[in-house]
Amino acid sequence: MIELQQNNPLHGLKLETMVAELVDFYDWKILYAALRLECFNTNPSMEACLKFLKKTEWARERVESFYLYRFKRMPKGSAAQFELKPRERGFAHGILPRKPQELTVELIAEMRDKATADYQEMKRSNSRPKFGKDKPKAQDNYAQNKRTGNKRPAPSQDPKNPWGN
């Protein structure tokens, strides 16, 4: 039995079509401001951009996420959904894409500044001691890749040998 494809605007969409839609609607400057990929900035052309995106998986995923959440304005998923690549994500049946979000270089700069400020505030609030003034924040030496005495070695940085054996 053929499994039904999840409701995903990226299903069956070629990379070339996606980039063409984005460039037609936003232009190269806005795409560069939003995604910060040099293929949209330095002598932008469809051929060079596609060549870069086909070779670079993380950049392609960034463009696909932008397409889903800014251009098609699909609803944000759960944390489990964000663990998946954009082409593997699904949406509830019946959810339709909305009109693309209008963006300008100035608006993107404002959004980036607000996100940076929010992140700095979150970082400040998380760095405060949670147990009162006198008690320091507990340190997790093992998670920070430090040796915890002579009993346990630090985790291995070798991806082929994650257990350090």
Rank of each mutant, 00 (worst) to 15 (best):
P9I: 08
M18R: 01
H11G: 13
E110A: 09
V23S: 01
P86A: 05
L22C: 06
D134H: 06
M122V: 05
V19S: 01
V63H: 00
Q6S: 14
Y26M: 08
L37W: 06
R112V: 05
L68D: 06
N43Q: 11
G94L: 09
K123R: 10
G90V: 08
A79W: 07
F82T: 09
T116M: 10
W28P: 08
K130G: 13
R128Y: 02
E121C: 03
K123A: 12
F25C: 04
Y69D: 02
G90A: 07
L35K: 01
A143Q: 09
R147I: 10
V63Q: 00
T148F: 02
E3F: 10
N41M: 13
K137R: 14
F71R: 00
N41A: 14
Y26H: 05
D134K: 02
A80D: 11
D140H: 01
E121M: 10
T148M: 10
Q5F: 13
T42R: 08
L13E: 14
P9Y: 03
S65T: 07
E110Y: 08
P86W: 01
W58C: 07
E64V: 12
L31C: 04
D134M: 04
L10Q: 00
I30G: 00
N161D: 15
G77L: 09
N8P: 09
G90L: 08
S127Q: 03
F71V: 04
P162R: 12
N150L: 15
N141K: 10
F40V: 02
S45V: 14
